[in-house]
Design a binder for these strands. Structure first.
Lengths: 115, 115
DNA sequence: CGGATTGTCAACCGGTTGGTTGAATATGCG
DNA sequence: CGCATATTCAACCAACCGGTTGACAATCCG
């Protein structure tokens, strides 16, 4: 699917879909389990999941009766890069971010609150 | 204006609006000048500008007849932080990332190459 | 004043979105 | 086989979106 900035951003514009993404951050889930916490029909959730799939933000793999949903965070990269063009991440180039990741992983106390 | 993730992301979901933001990256502009390169009515652009204003992504200040549009890149921060929670933050807590952002913005030299 | 420029408002229109319901389609299990 | 489970499909609906046009308001200028 062509995951354009349009499809990605508009997929992210719905709170239900963002909540679904957050849930999938924890673990892969079946459609029914994704739907469980929401007060809307399963069919509605199914639609949200196809929107997310078309945006490339998740992938769905059928295994037996169950269709598993998996987060595909790479789809956020293009959008993230686009946003970085706008100043608010002044100086926060990806290299710096990688170094931050390394540092954090090596020594999580590095960025502790310093008061 | 309450600039929620909803309003920000849905504002960004339209290519015309993203193009407008990119133009404003260069310089502040009057409404008519913003509209000039687009093949649509001034009224349509005016609507897009109110959407961007409601999302907090731009501000508009009237000076005489002319209304100047100014980019407000800070509005992207919340959305950006939300997005960074996915994928690149594997195994990291968001609080640390936000502290990182603050520190980075306060002192960009913090993460200079250390070789 | 009177005319040109700048921008918004209001009404309208077709297409999309986010939800519903009920039927349909697989698949697994006893 | 026959039933329960898992998920989608199809039709429908109200609401919203992105665009149009024409009228309107405000400001500058000769």
């Amino acid at each position: 699917m062509a995951a354009t900035l349009d499809t990605v951003f508009s997929a992210l514009a719905d709170p239900t879909r963002r909540a679904i993404l957050a849930m999938l951050l924890e673990d892969d889930m079946a459609v029914t389990d994704v739907a469980e916490p929401f007060e809307m029909s399963l069919a509605a959730i199914s639609k949200h999941l196809t929107v997310l799939t078309n945006a490339g933000l998740i992938s769905q793999e059928r295994r037996g009766r169950v269709k598993w949903c998996k987060l595909e965070p790479d789809a956020l990269r293009e959008a993230s890069v686009w946003m970085q063009g706008f100043g608010m991440m002044e100086g926060l180039d990806l290299d710096a971010f990688e170094r931050f990741l390394d540092a954090e992983l090596a020594d999580p106390s590095l960025l502790e609150e310093k008061e």
